[in-house]
Design a protein around this nucleic acid. Sequence first.
DNA 1: GTCTATACTTGGATAGAC
DNA 2: GTCTATCCAAGTATAGAC
Lengths: 206, 206
Amino acid sequence: MLKASAQGTATRERILEAAFETVRREGYANTSARAIARRGSFNQALIFYHFGEVNQLLLAAVDRVGEARRKRYREVLGSPADPLEFAARARLLYDEDVDSGHSTVVAELCAASSGNPVLREHMLARMESWLGFTAELFKRFLGGSPLAALIEPKAAAGAVLALYLGMDLLIPLDGDPRRAPDLFHHAHPLAATLVTLVAARGPHSA
Amino acid sequence: MLKASAQGTATRERILEAAFETVRREGYANTSARAIARRGSFNQALIFYHFGEVNQLLLAAVDRVGEARRKRYREVLGSPADPLEFAARARLLYDEDVDSGHSTVVAELCAASSGNPVLREHMLARMESWLGFTAELFKRFLGGSPLAALIEPKAAAGAVLALYLGMDLLIPLDGDPRRAPDLFHHAHPLAATLVTLVAARGPHSA
DNA sequence: GTCTATACTTGGATAGAC
DNA sequence: GTCTATCCAAGTATAGAC
């Protein structure tokens, strides 16, 4: 039956959505099969039928959103841009990540990975994927710039990722939505000065 | 009885230590009263006698280490230092935080705060304390430098804290102890160049 | 202050009816 | 594919003996 299968797919989506929202709003520690089912108004047993166990569901939920985000990143950052334009786009993407809860859920699952080998393996692979992606961005962005002599793409990508995750531990903590905008705001003149100065004098002049 | 009270104090210490180590090694999600008691080889009921509930114990455990770390920070960063010396000391302190597990436990509890108002309130206060401390460091460090025009202490402190927390989500993930050293290593020439260039030309020249 | 025993709750997971 | 019912494991917390 095509109809039955279509309904199964729709249910899967509902479960994935509810799982994501539960982690986002209640944290990993409070994300039980029962809590997810309550939020999505469906039967708790469906989780095990469709996903086997709760952690597998959570991984599927974060992957689902993660793939959409990855696609969006490619779209927005694919075309060439000068540094200022690039920064504006990166900020847009970051805001989307915060608003959608993606970054919160990723941070929650990273923290939970600590005590769960299966989760850890999976999240490690996901984060390494983002690390490689970000490192490529740095390479492309730094290509031909004097800054290339000063910034190692992989290390810089690691720092960006860590900053990203760390912000998303702090944001739910104080509930201050201005934290991230402020950081972008204040980082801007610093970055602009660095780019200008290095371009003018080169990284090795002293 | 002084002896009985002394033993009670010793037990409290054992419980605090076991609680800290359990969060560090097994993650918040696996940190139950039973798991803590198992690790410390004492009776599970003692936790409730001494601390009332598990979360209170965890907060006491992170505070105990946090206060020691704060003291250490003051000692090491109290005396004047040029930028290079300052960076070396900051790195030493950071390595200690990672080795001791302090940063991991803080990150775990921040993540867990998401779903627990009491925990959140407490961790928020602790993090704001560190935020103020770090902002003061920036103020002192930037005083009289041309960089002061480019770096807002509070925003910079927030970024450092986020970076710190984020690193401690990533480190247990891949178990790579070279992650942090590498970051310091690669950041060094960038920082050195920035300091030199800004000192030579000032932040507003273009 | 510490231990044993236990009441109670929540959650993971499955069997079997529909 | 979904629902009801249920079993079992693990955890919180307390009472009461020592």
